[in-house]
Design a protein around this nucleic acid. Structure first.
Lengths: 230, 230
DNA sequence: TTAATGCTTCGGTTATGGTCGAACTATGAA
DNA sequence: TTCATAGTTCGACCATAACCGAAGCATTAA
């Protein structure tokens, strides 16, 4: 015993319900203020402040001061990755939160997973890309093919710029609700950005839900048809 | 708030020092008895029993009864993956355990990470495979090339059998001590098995350390030369 | 300046949960 | 059978840490 990094330290931090709620809220990718996070967690502001300070000194958060506001966001992809992993384990344990309200339905349909599209539509997009041969799975790892590169370029995504950045282009992300793969990485983020830029969808203010307009959803289905509809 | 799986439930479970020690011990990939895990965690047997029961009902462990012994192991790769991720965060937070004794030195040199080789020699193996063109990194994801397949076959590893199994062949694993990639997945496991079968190395009984013999280490270096020595 | 808002710090209360001793069950050995 | 070992369950104790009220600090608006 007493070998390796202090895993309990980090896990305890995530393990408190209030802090877990805050972290989950930050999975939206947005930067949130102390008051907003207090609201999310259902605690008073001073309690939230104490929690956030702990998460910060552990390096899980990236704070930014702006005037009299203090914004927090997850410090990097690794943190988001671990959180998603924990969600997977919790979902696997059949340990979902109480009931599934109307909000939950929207979350299952489409939501952001840190910075890319997850949920039903996320997996649909992924499946469609695979079916069309734009993405191939190599040992459960997604790779963009030549036709995929053309497809992406057609959609006005600057692939070269993405490649130049050091972040991984394609990443697989296991969805906790669907238990199936969807596209993460900088390409996944780029797709979501385009959807928003085209006004196909917008992010819900109060949750991680991604709300597609009727036209947006239709365009999405045309672009990412399911195998059956081919 | 109140969306998604109960991440705090799992994190709290991992967050207790005693349980974290047990889980860390199980990262060795071995199945351990209640008494052994109690020893690892530094608690009495009845306390360990209670902890293990909780971890079990959460689905993190796989129990097996054998005679009057009860063996526990991690229930799957996902659990190991999350744990390794947490180690990464903890190490990133500069929050390493107290001091680094002589035992720790051995751990940095070579240790098992769930079921494959990690530490200095793990990253060396990975770097060498990459330098020789046996493995290519595609967006930070390792892939076995044709020459790599031949290399593996030469080493008497039954690649087809591995491919038939559903588990991913190559997986990247970020080392917490080196902060660099090494080879996980079923191929990583197969390599470690071969090292043991050839008596190049054996696992330390009381830690996650992998102890190479002098001849084994030489053979290892011949097989996996560093770029500089080429 | 004063007032209002956003956040932090301090002190005291409370409860959750980790801990062990002791008693109990189950498997195997003598 | 009796004894020994492995593990579980129960009950009581105790410490850690989450929580909020109140007061304090910092920034912006009036």
């Amino acid at each position: 015993m007493k070998e390796g990094p202090d895993i309990a330290y980090i896990a305890t931090l995530i393990g408190d319900p209030a802090r877990a709620n805050m972290l989950t809220a930050l999975m939206s990718g947005k930067a949130l203020t102390v008051s907003e996070l207090a609201q999310e967690a259902g605690v008073t502001i001073q309690t939230a402040s104490a929690h956030l300070s702990k998460l910060d000194t552990a390096g899980l958060l990236r704070p930014r001061k702006q005037g009299r506001h203090k914004y927090f966001s997850l410090s990097n992809d690794d943190v988001a990755h671990v959180l998603e992993g924990l969600m997977g384990l919790a979902a696997g344990a059949g340990h979902l939160r109480k009931r599934t309200g109307p909000k939950d339905a929207a979350l299952r349909e489409a939501r952001v997973c840190y910075n890319h599209l997850a949920g039903d539509m996320g997996t649909q997009m992924f499946d469609s890309l695979t079916a069309q041969g734009h993405v191939v799975l190599d040992n459960e790892r997604p790779m963009l093919t030549a036709s995929g590169a053309a497809f992406v370029a057609d959609f006005d995504i600057d692939l070269d710029a993405l490649r130049r950045a050091r972040a991984p282009l394609c990443r697989e992300c296991l969805d906790w609700s669907e238990r199936r793969s969807h596209l993460a990485g900088s390409l996944g983020r780029a797709f979501l950005n385009r959807f928003e830029a085209l006004s196909w969808a917008r992010r819900d203010q109060n949750s991680r839900a991604v709300l597609f307009s009727r036209e947006g959803a239709e365009a999405f289905r045309r672009l990412f048809p399911l195998k059956i509809t081919l």
